[in-house]
Nucleic acid binder design. Structure first.
Length: 567
RNA sequence: CGGGAAGUGGCGCAGUGGUAGCGCACCCGCUUUGGGAGCGGGGGGUCGGGAGUUCAAGUCUCCCCUUCCCGACCA
């Protein structure tokens, strides 16, 4: 492709509304343009990268036995009413009506449609398992789209759905998909970790999230430096190393101390000259109408996902200002676990420790020291509800855990029978009995992956694509100028371009009448892996210069050997 | 939805009540050509929208819309 004909314009300055590197560079280098918040046009450069990633995914899906199809983006709300997700997804769905006022939505995902489709086509155990996928646009009206392609409202997703007679069979496909995902993200050049994840709105039990390691990621995950344990912080566990000691009567008795205007952990710890981890944080919540307290050490936060699981099926609602106003007997900032109104006490196992705790005294401006678990307050539910910190002990091997940030680029779920039951996807077994199909689902954010790749592969000059996903293989720069050699340089570059194309090499040819500096800067910004420079300087010696974008490494190639060398 | 910031030419910005500007980009000419060239000329803007105040509004007031950042929420 000649740049004089190519629909692409680079920007000399960073766009004002792009903060993260991937967004900034995609716009500056001419890959995408914003049309609305979280909605983008993919210009030809971007389209090429999108197709590359898409093709890697398609390749791995096909070779894993999945079959591609295309499901509608416009979906009848009726199907969503059957699964109950029209209400649970709520305003996250873009909704519309046809002229007869029938309700539709733009697909945020496709469990309902695929399950309905399979229900109508298959009915025997002989026809299972089956694994179907599509690569199609998804729509979610996020409260806050941000970070360019990383959280868009319109995004390209590969979604696969498998149907089985039983969980054992599902597990086999799950593993096949899990392995395929490793290959996909390896081929995309990403540093990633599969971690245990929360099921979210899709439902189901077992699931893994594939996290591309990146500082701008929106998810924290923990991973063990010594073994394979890795999990989203929402579901992460740890081993408590502190030994429990029975308080008995030999330990100091609770003592009320005056802590004026110190509702915070930090201030109290400083006032009493203690470390924050010996203070007890009492976190008030409502569990289906009953007042509850969650207890974690003062240097930790409450993992609300874990707390919600611990009190299930009761519904968790964290206390807000309205609740505290309605319960004046609960002095915010001075709450202790021995409060008479509290019906449910959930504590992290680390609370059963070898020391007494400093807790709120349930009285404004007062705390109590030497509060021993089981002696001075009791716990109803033990659960891992404290957030994990770097250095905590791995639940599998006991060695140190690390907490990092990641971009969730893929997820694999075991769904079970939620949708097959709701939408009538059943099969008849060998004995003539009817059962709901057991389902799995597997997603990859294609457009998000494009952004994640840039987050990992860029420098101060621009993007540095891995070869596998680059929009072109070679960026050919002709530095013809208007000197004595101008005609020769131009003719040589033209000929080289034609030869490379004929040899099947995807070339972006900078044939513009621009100064060398402009061409070099644009080439580095756009980020094609190999730059070939044809100039009077090198041509005088019969060579073409080659630069590897990612490493900056340069070498020279004899003009006659260019095609055979770079092919 | 709470908190903060911002909407002026394609992009980045200046402009506190009185003739809409600058840099880049774009077009023409000449010069230049190995890391974002120089000079000269030129085109392009309902100043986010609507109401209002005023002799006069990009600028002041009110309402609305949009965008970005933090939070809540979420693949």
């Amino acid at each position: 492709m000649k740049m004089t004909n190519f629909f692409a314009r680079t920007l000399r300055e960073d766009p004002a509304d792009a903060d993260v590197d991937s967004h900034r560079l995609l716009v500056r280098a001419g890959y995408i343009r914003k049309v609305a918040a979280g909605v983008y046009s993919w210009l030809p450069l971007g389209q090429r990268v999108l197709r590359k990633v898409e093709q890697i995914v398609r390749d791995e899906m096909d070779s894993s036995g999945a079959q591609e199809l295309t499901l509608p983006i416009t979906q009848p709300l009726e199907l969503w009413e059957k699964s109950g997700r029209d209400t649970t997804y709520g305003p996250l769905m873009f909704r519309l009506q046809d002229r007869k006022e029938t309700g539709f939505c733009l697909a945020p995902t496709a469990e309902e449609v695929i399950t309905w489709t399979v229900a109508n086509e298959l009915s025997s155990y002989r026809e299972l398992p089956v694994n179907l996928y599509q690569i199609n646009w998804k729509y979610r009206d996020e409260l806050r789209p941000r970070f360019g392609l990383l959280r868009a409202r319109e995004f390209l997703m590969k979604d696969a759905y498998s149907f089985h007679t039983d969980v054992e069979d599902l597990r086999r496909t799950y593993k096949v998909m899990y392995d395929a995902y490793h290959r996909v993200f390896d081929r995309c050049g990403l540093t990633f970790r599969p971690v245990e994840g929360e099921a979210g709105e899709i439902g189901g039990d077992v699931n893994h999230e594939f996290m591309a390691v990146a500082a701008v990621g929106e998810d924290d995950f923990v991973w063990c430096k010594s073994c394979t344990y890795a999990a989203n912080v929402e579901v992460a566990r740890r081993t408590i190393v502190r030994a429990a000691v029975d308080a008995g009567s030999g330990q100091a008795q609770p003592t009320k101390v005056h802590t004026p205007a110190m509702p915070g952990i930090a201030a109290v710890a400083e006032h009493l000259n203690m470390t924050q981890d010996v203070l007890l944080k009492s976190f008030a919540f409502d569990a289906g109408g009953e007042m509850g307290l969650a207890l974690v050490p003062g240097d930790r936060e409450v993992n609300e996902f874990a707390l919600a699981r611990a009190i299930a099926p009761k519904k968790l609602r964290v206390y807000d200002e309205t609740d505290f106003a309605a319960h004046p007997e609960l002095p915010k900032g001075y709450i202790g676990p021995h409060h008479s109104s509290v019906k449910i006490v959930v504590a992290d196992p680390s609370i059963r420790a070898d020391h007494g705790w400093v807790t709120g005294a349930n009285e404004i401006d007062h705390h109590t020291t030497d509060m021993w678990c089981d002696r001075d307050f009791s716990v109803g539910v033990w659960a891992d509800i404290a957030t994990i910190a770097s250095g905590d002990a791995c639940p599998e091997c006991g060695n140190a855990l690390s907490v990092d940030r990641g971009i969730e680029v893929g997820q694999v779920f075991e769904i079970g029978t939620k949708y097959s039951t709701a939408l009538g996807a059943t099969y008849v077994d060998a004995d003539g009995q009817t059962h709901p199909m057991v389902m799995g689902c597997y997603g990859i954010g294609i457009s998000r992956t494009v952004a994640a790749i840039i987050e990992e592969h860029h420098d101060e000059l621009g993007i540095a694509w891995p070869k596998s996903v680059a929009p072109f293989d070679i960026h050919l720069l002709a530095l013809s100028g208007k000197g004595a050699a101008a005609e020769t340089v131009k003719a040589t570059a033209d000929a080289l371009y034609a030869e490379l194309k004929a040899a099947g090499v995807d070339v972006l040819y900078d044939d513009r009448e621009a100064s060398p500096g402009v061409k070099f800067a644009d080439a580095d910004l756009i980020g094609i892996p190999v730059q070939l420079t044809v100039g009077a300087k090198g041509l005088g010696r019969g060579i073409v210069e080659r630069k590897q974008r990612a490493t900056g490494e340069r070498d020279e190639i004899e003009l006659a050997d260019v095609v055979s060398t770079v092919r």
